[in-house]
């Protein structure tokens, strides 16, 4: 176990540097003339250009620039947006509502997915099973740019069941519709994985043993099968976080939830390059850390997995 953790950490370091390097190289390398871009139409004196070049380390070689970028990331300095606000401050005011939205989405999705997944896993081939398979296929195929505006239009504007937009102090009720939309991104995968895990575990030896001991059906499924079936579902969280981040950009923009995704979408709209890069860098780091934790959790949860 210890060796696994060490190896996984080393891998994570490599991935971390690789991923941040990719983001950095894609945004900053070979820019035409960032100084002129900063100044816009105005002419720039040679003096000013020299000062700016030095301040932003533009005269240094590429790898040295990457080093400064990394130093910024590791010390919590993610740069300043074109509006003059520090990225980290914007992040700080934006993340609580995004976390709230994300948690709601995960909880709703997991509850529905596990319940429906267990039922269709037990009754394979039933009407319920086939219906959920068709529904999950449709949900998997619905892009969030379709789902979010249509949900807002139908349930928010026409039927008026939910508030169509959220505000800074959004209550749980305000966030319910966006959370449902966001949760639908991950619900289909979770459901299918639960279903196949339950179906597989039902055929396993330990379930036969439990039945032979005379345990009730409820206990066999609720304790023995469920506990083992949830392991693969837990590992999905890592992948899901990436999907939720992407989904949050569109969902928050459509429902006006002033969170991380909303700021990022606005930054794209206003051509605020530093904001986009800063936010993306932070999100990539979060994504990597969560995936590391999930992998470690997986190894801890499942005793069958022994990594050497």
């Amino acid at each position: 176990m210890f060796r696994y953790i060490v190896r996984r950490l080393l891998q994570m370091v490599l991935t971390f540097f690789g991923a941040t390097f990719l983001v950095f190289a894609l945004t900053f390398a070979n820019q035409d003339d960032p100084i002129q871009a900063l100044a816009g139409e105005r002419p720039i004196t040679e003096n000013l250009r020299q000062t700016l070049m030095e301040r932003y380390h533009l005269d240094e070689p590429f790898l040295v620039q990457y080093w400064y970028y990394m130093k910024g990331l590791l010390t919590g300095d993610f740069g300043t947006s074109l509006t003059g606000r520090k990225i980290i401050d914007m992040m700080e005011s934006a993340w609580p509502i995004t976390i709230k939205l994300g948690l709601m989405a995960i909880i709703i999705a997991a509850t529905i997915a596990v319940t429906a997944g267990v039922i269709s896993g037990i009754r394979r081939g039933s009407i319920f099973d086939n219906a959920t398979l068709v529904v999950t296929l449709i949900i998997l195929s619905l892009p969030i740019v379709v789902l979010a505006p249509l949900a807002q239009l139908v349930f928010g504007i026409q039927l008026k069941w939910f508030p169509p937009t959220a505000t800074v102090n959004a209550s749980l009720w305000d966030l319910l519709l966006p959370a449902l939309v966001l949760g639908s991104l991950v619900i289909a995968t979770e459901l299918r994985v639960t279903r196949s895990a339950v179906a597989e575990n039902l055929r396993s030896d330990y379930v036969r043993t439990a039945r032979a001991k005379g345990l009730s059906r409820k206990r066999v499924i609720g304790v023995h099968v469920l506990r083992n079936s949830l392991i693969p579902v837990v590992t999905l969280i890592g992948v899901d976080i990436g999907g939720l981040m992407s989904g949050a950009i569109v969902t928050e923009r459509i429902f006006n939830v002033p969170g991380v995704g909303f700021n990022l979408a606005r930054g794209i709209g206003t051509e605020d390059g530093p904001l986009v890069v800063g936010f993306v860098s932070i999100l990539v780091i979060i994504f990597l850390v969560v995936n590391l934790l999930v992998d470690l959790l997986y190894a801890a949860l499942d005793p069958r997995i022994r990594y050497e």
Binding site: G18, L22, G242, S246, V280
Partner: peptide
């Protein structure tokens, strides 16, 4: 490394 960056980002 490529999978380390969420797709849309």
């Amino acid at each position: 490394i490529i999978l380390g960056v969420p797709f849309l980002l």
